[in-house]
Design a protein around this nucleic acid. Structure first.
Lengths: 343, 343
DNA sequence: CACCAAGATGTTTACGCAAACATGGAACCG
DNA sequence: CGGTTCCATGTTTGCGTAAACATCTTGGTG
């Protein structure tokens, strides 16, 4: 294996001038070659490329950015990488950004307080980014004190951020409707709901849609059960629900809570889906291997990521473009955790 | 909510010169204030800060980097965010980097080929980073064609990268030993192993250590079962193992494969842990809520992240510092999926 | 009171790159 | 064959910042 040496002593990073000297041309010609412009003689180009190779020349991003005002980098502000949705979204955004020849600058914020979000903005605007994607439970965006730094285009993912922002989001309401309607169509009379935390807009969208779907079917929704996305909270509610024999269908706002609920039902000796049907949300890795395999709602993170980057780059190119909101549809994935109620 | 306006038309981003003009000082004084240097009169400093506030001045990172040669940014090269370990490690690295006042530039590589890794390097060295953390199954680092770009300090995580690199990694061997020894100490005679893919160094370390532990106990290891980290592959092997009644203990190289194996055993009507005990690796979210809750090996990603950043920044400050390797110990988390074999 | 030290502030310069403009030579035209 | 075009290449300049150096002010000292 080649040895991972650093640069040789005294060998500072070569600049265009160094390359130019070696190739016997002006630095401007090196610049042209470096940027792939057309008006360069083939022989000259070859000589310059050769010199670059020899010296190990790499363009200096800082200088380039200073000159052009563009960094080809976008910032991503997000809470810590704890929830599946955030991770998948980040993955999609990063992949898409790289595809569009942009780098991704990660700005994790330690806790979801207004202060730390603002802090992230400070760092962001001091940093070298052309725009930013905010992956965030958006409660905080609705506060008056919260002002975006001027001059930085932003796209918000996963939120109920008011008008004035460009928003891309999964159609949470559709997903919850699919889940609830699926259980109703199997013949269940009531569908219980283990919701996500109050601070989350996604959770709010899902529970509102669950409630609306039931009401539209002429069914009075049972009391909402508040969880916090963790399997543990699903387990807690699962224990309570499993002890009642009038509970036959549960819609959990994410797969982990569904997992916890199923564990509780197992412990109580209740059959899934025989006694109780369960639907989750996210289609996390492994959901197909839960016991039983979980019926769940799949989000199209890839599309969310692609749209976000595309819209962001549009806004970078034309900051005056009007904000808009886009929702991406979900899919219901039917597996073995749902069945008609016992007659 | 405040309207998310962009900058006013014609209002380019203010520079130090603008601030200086408004405050009636030289731009150098603004620089001093901006960098918190001491030799500035209190009144002057206040006036400058005031002007900064008024104009909404933010230092230009590109110019600063061009001048200082430091970007306060580190690159992270990794395969897509699909595996839990990668995600957790990234989270830890990012958190730690921000803590050290560095930004994190994400460089995902689309597929684990030598070509795309090299491509990432190209982009990296063209980008504005002081150093890089490589989170990677390290097979590729051992290829002769693979040369690091000179002058960029690198720390490698999760690998068997040869000498010459600075490496930080979880003590995979320890974890596998803990898992295997736990099953042996419960009285199991043979421990079967569902391994990760051949291309993974982590997988190799885990299976080698599993084998070594058995041999040290005077037990001939059963044939190794090759998986690919997915629950599906665990399920496949679980079906095969569950059909033999001489199988009482399984060590899966990650939690998802353990999950799949358990599902297979459930389907076959074999009790876990009554008939078969299972140990996983990773302690993923929800592992405590599997049915049954999974005994597993927990990695200390936070420490890995912290050490990586610290070592990397050390190398940035002093590129001549000698490479070394550090391993971080694991913990065995004992839950309900393991028990003594039936007598 | 001349002189000096120390601190505050200003001026110059260079970082590496690329746009804008300048130059020089070859090909083409009537 | 004089003039016009076009293309390859060179020269100048400035992006925003901060180090290095220069200058000015203030107060204290012999």
């Amino acid at each position: 294996m080649t040895s991972p040496r650093g640069s040789r002593p005294g060998t500072a990073r070569p600049s265009m001038a160094d390359v130019a000297r070696l190739a016997g041309v002006s630095s401007q010609t090196v610049s042209r070659v470096s940027n792939g412009q057309a008006n360069v003689d083939e022989a000259t180009r070859a000589r310059v490329l050769d010199a670059m190779q020899t010296l190990g020349y790499r363009p200096n991003g800082a200088a380039r950015a200073l000159k052009s005002g563009r960094f080809h980098t976008i910032g991503v502000i997000m809470t810590t990488l704890q929830t599946l949705g955030n991770i998948r979204t980040l993955d999609a955004v990063a992949t898409e950004a790289v595809h569009a020849d942009n780098a991704v600058l990660l700005m994790p914020i330690p806790d979801p307080t207004l202060r730390s979000v603002s802090g992230a903005y400070q760092r962001l605007s001091a940093q070298a980014v052309d725009g930013a994607v905010i992956i965030l439970e958006a409660r905080f965006l609705d506060r008056a004190e919260f002002a975006l730094p001027p001059g930085i285009p932003v796209v918000v993912i996963d939120s109920g951020a008011g008008p004035g922002y460009t928003v891309v989001d999964t159609d949470q309401a559709l997903g919850a409707r699919q889940a609830t309607a699926h259980l109703l169509s199997l013949g269940h009379r009531r569908v219980w709901h283990v919701a996500g935390p109050e601070t989350s807009f996604s959770a709010a969208h899902r529970s509102e849609s669950w409630e609306g779907t039931l009401r539209a079917a002429g069914i009075e929704p049972p009391p909402l059960l508040r969880g916090d996305w963790t399997a543990e909270s699903g387990y807690r509610h699962g224990l309570a629900l499993g002890r009642r024999d009038d509970v036959t269908a549960i819609f959990a706002a994410n797969d982990e809570m569904a997992l916890g609920a199923m564990r509780a039902l197992h412990e109580l000796g209740r059959a899934v889906p025989g006694d109780v049907s369960i639907v989750g949300f996210d289609d996390m890795d492994g959901a197909a291997s839960f016991w039983p395999p979980l019926t769940t709602v799949r989000q199209d993170f890839a599309t969310v990521g692609r749209l976000s980057i595309r819209k962001l780059l549009d806004r970078v190119a034309d900051p005056a473009s009007p904000p808009d909101t886009t929702v991406v549809p979900t899919d219901l994935v039917i597996r073995a955790s749902t069945a008609p109620p016992r007659p």
